[in-house]
Simulated scan of single mutants.
Amino acid sequence: MITAEEIGVYKPRLRAFAYTLDKLGVAPDEIVHVSASPSRRGPAVPRARPASP
């Protein structure tokens, strides 16, 4: 788990997401963000699906 306190910034600051991607060693299309605040959700955003083998 990566917290805003660890990063020193809060979302939606790009630095928060960039830090997380770098720390996990993944690309943006390899991760899913899950909100902890359902009441603050925005509209659903479709994500790319991996190609079938």
Results as ranks from 00 to 15, higher is better:
M1I: 00
M1N: 07
G8T: 09
A44V: 03
T20P: 00
T3V: 04
A44N: 10
V26Y: 09
E5Q: 11
A51R: 01
I31F: 03
T3R: 11
M1R: 03
H33W: 15
R41C: 14
G8H: 01
I31T: 10
H33Y: 08
S39W: 12
H33E: 07
H33C: 09
R49Q: 14
A36H: 13
A16L: 13
I31N: 01
K23L: 09
A27P: 02
V32S: 04
Y19F: 14
G42T: 07
E30F: 07
L24W: 04
E5D: 15
V26W: 07
V9Y: 10
K11M: 15
K23P: 02
K11D: 05
H33I: 11
R40L: 11
T20N: 00
V9A: 14
R15C: 15
E30P: 11
T20H: 00
A36M: 13
M1D: 06
F17S: 03
P50A: 11
R15E: 15
S52G: 04
S52M: 08
I7Y: 02
K11P: 13
R41N: 10
H33K: 02
R49H: 00
A18C: 07
I2G: 01
P28G: 02
P53H: 06
E30S: 13
R49W: 04
R15N: 15
I2H: 01
A4F: 05
R49I: 02
A36K: 12
E30G: 12
F17E: 04
E6D: 13
E6P: 00
K23C: 03
Y19H: 14
S37R: 14
V45E: 09
P46K: 01
I7Q: 06
T3D: 06
P28Y: 03
Y10G: 01
V45Y: 07
M1K: 12
R15M: 14
R15W: 09
S37V: 08
I2Q: 09
V32F: 01
D22T: 08
L24D: 11
S39T: 05
E30Y: 10
V9W: 06
R15S: 15
R13S: 15
R13M: 15
E6A: 12
Y19T: 14
F17C: 06
V32C: 05
A16P: 08
A4Q: 10
R13G: 14
S35P: 01
V34T: 08
L21G: 00
V45S: 05
P38S: 11
R40E: 09
Y19P: 04
R47N: 10
G25N: 01
V32W: 00
R47G: 14
A51N: 03
A48K: 13
L14K: 14
K11Q: 14
P50E: 03
A48Q: 12
G8L: 00
P28E: 06
I7K: 00
G42Y: 09
R49D: 12
S39D: 07
V34I: 14
G42A: 00
P12L: 02
I31P: 04
R47W: 07
D22S: 13
G25D: 07
A18R: 09
G42R: 08
V45F: 13
A4I: 05
A4W: 04
P50Q: 05
E5P: 01
D29A: 08
R47M: 10
K23E: 13
E6I: 02
P46D: 12
A27C: 10
D22L: 12
A48N: 05
